[in-house]
Design a protein around this nucleic acid. Structure first.
Lengths: 196, 196
DNA sequence: CTACATTTGCTAACACTGTTAACAAGGAGT
DNA sequence: ACTCCTTGTTAACAGTGTTAGCAAATGTAG
């Protein structure tokens, strides 16, 4: 079993991805997939129980890739503050180099799929952020800070910048931008500065 | 002319809004609208050239309301730094009290409509932010700062926090949150602190 | 090798969607 | 009475996600 099985599932994913990249999420339809893989409609349903199921696959795939990129970006850096900068840069690059992925992951103008948030793959991404933030906090003996809160703030800054950029500059822009560096610098300060 | 005309257009908007609030954006269909207003399909097209056109109406309506809320929030406050805090709080409240509006305005999981960004109503919202930021900068003689850049940062922080909140805490949460205050505080510092 | 069972894939349909063409009824103006 | 135009209709086109029912091929047991 399952050689052809796996192969066909890959075919579906692969062809779907082509459609998405060339025509956007809106254009992705089961019928189009079916003809692309050279089979009839119901075959697709043998491998994905619904269209949402297929879309969720790409969302998970995106978080997997993002987590990998993030991990790689800090692998050879041992200063945890500098790691935060690298994470931010890596996050930004992911969003722009894998735009379509980012779109489903954070629901920016997608057909169906209501709540594809909070699966395991996303929690892994959180962990990468959290660990690094935790290190910076520990390093500066700022144990009064709430890591979860800071994680949320960090992620919000990143996503906010990316989303506004993606929404306004529809087509251009790529480099991590001054704003990003500035914002992250401020965030790091909020971790290292001691106050009341 | 146009008494009945205006009336029917209002009916369409009104009934559409009911559907959206009760069943979400996904459930909004021209047919459903038609039966809701007691007319047949093509009537809807007399008042809105397409579904996107109708959706865009709500997007504009949202930005109008947001701009109004923002302006009101700072009307009786003369300290421009404090105004920024009020703007942030007001923005947050708008996003949570007018969730469905916020969803289309920033494309969080919507059916059709590719690029409903950058219409005039949105630029008005920008202006409110920009004016206040400009004031803070002037007040601290930090004229080397780029207002547009700071505007983008401010908006990004706000949207980022809101979006992450809306995506994760699907149903709960309402109060402007500690993170928001913290983040805005940091932003204000970046406006008032002088450096290289 | 036959006979049954299972998988594999198909066609066709259901219930929807946005959008538009073609047409019927009513009132206004000449 | 005869146009003209607005107002509204029905019916259709071209799509969508999804599923039921059936045919053919494939594998397994006797």
């Amino acid at each position: 079993m399952s050689n052809h099985h796996e192969n066909l599932k890959n075919q579906i994913v692969c062809q779907s991805w082509m459609i998405i990249q060339e025509e956007g999420w809106q254009a992705l339809s089961i019928r189009k997939i079916a003809t692309a893989i050279g089979y009839s409609l119901p075959v697709v349903y043998k491998y994905f129980s619904s269209k949402d199921d297929l879309i969720e696959h790409f969302s998970k795939e995106g978080f997997l890739k993002l987590t990998e990129d993030l991990k790689n970006s800090i692998a050879e850096e041992h200063d945890s503050k500098q790691q935060l900068n690298l994470l931010a840069e890596s996050y930004w690059n992911f969003a722009f180099n894998h735009r379509k992925h980012y779109e489903i992951m954070f629901g920016l103008g997608i057909p169906t799929c209501e709540k594809i948030n909070s699966h395991v793959e996303m929690q892994d991404t959180c962990l990468v952020f959290e660990n690094t933030i935790q290190q910076v906090i520990a390093q500066h003996q700022n144990t009064n800070l709430d890591v979860h809160l800071k994680l949320k703030t960090f992620w919000s800054i990143l996503h906010g910048l990316v989303a506004i950029e993606l929404l306004t500059n529809s087509e251009e822009s790529a480099s991590p931008s001054l704003i990003l560096k500035d914002a992250i610098e401020g965030f790091i300060l909020s971790l290292t500065n001691k106050k009341a």
